[in-house]
Simulated scan of single mutants.
Amino acid sequence: MALTLYVDTDRWRAHQQSVIQQFPGIVPVCKGNGYGFGHERLADEATKFGADILAVGTTYEAARTKDLFGGDLLVLTPFRKDEEPVPLPDRAIRSVSSVEGVALMRGARVVIEVMSSMKRHGVTEADLPKLHAAIDEVRLEGFAIHLPLDRTDGSDAVEEVIGWMDRLRAARLPLDTMFVSHLKPNEFAVLQQQFPQTRFRARIGTRLWLGDHQATEYRGAILDVTRVAKGERFGYRQARASGDGWLVVVAGGTSHGVGLEAPKALHGMTSRAKGVARAGLATVNRNLSPFVWAGKQRWFAEPPHMQVSILFIPSDAPEPHVGEELTAILRHTTTMVDRTMDR
Rank of each mutant, 00 (worst) to 15 (best):
247 L>P: 04
115 M>R: 07
291 F>C: 03
90 D>C: 07
224 D>T: 05
227 R>D: 10
320 P>V: 00
10 D>M: 12
106 R>A: 15
25 G>R: 10
26 I>A: 12
118 M>A: 14
308 V>G: 03
328 A>N: 04
208 L>Q: 08
312 F>Y: 00
94 R>A: 01
254 T>E: 04
7 V>Y: 08
323 G>N: 09
278 R>H: 05
265 A>F: 12
152 T>V: 03
249 V>H: 06
63 A>P: 02
253 G>S: 04
237 R>F: 15
302 E>R: 10
220 G>D: 13
282 A>K: 11
271 S>R: 12
223 L>Q: 10
323 G>P: 00
162 I>G: 01
17 Q>F: 05
222 I>R: 09
58 T>F: 03
38 G>A: 09
231 G>C: 07
230 K>F: 08
275 G>M: 12
242 S>Y: 06
132 H>Q: 13
214 Q>R: 15
247 L>W: 00
227 R>F: 06
191 L>G: 05
62 A>Y: 11
204 I>H: 09
323 G>K: 03
248 V>C: 03
62 A>G: 08
289 S>K: 08
324 E>C: 10
293 W>D: 04
111 V>P: 02
216 T>W: 07
331 R>L: 12
197 Q>F: 00
93 I>E: 03
80 R>G: 09
63 A>T: 02
295 G>W: 11
160 E>T: 02
59 T>I: 11
181 S>C: 04
151 R>F: 15
171 A>W: 14
205 G>E: 05
188 F>Y: 15
179 F>K: 03
205 G>V: 08
37 F>T: 14
209 W>S: 02
162 I>E: 12
23 F>K: 05
310 I>G: 04
63 A>Y: 15
292 V>F: 14
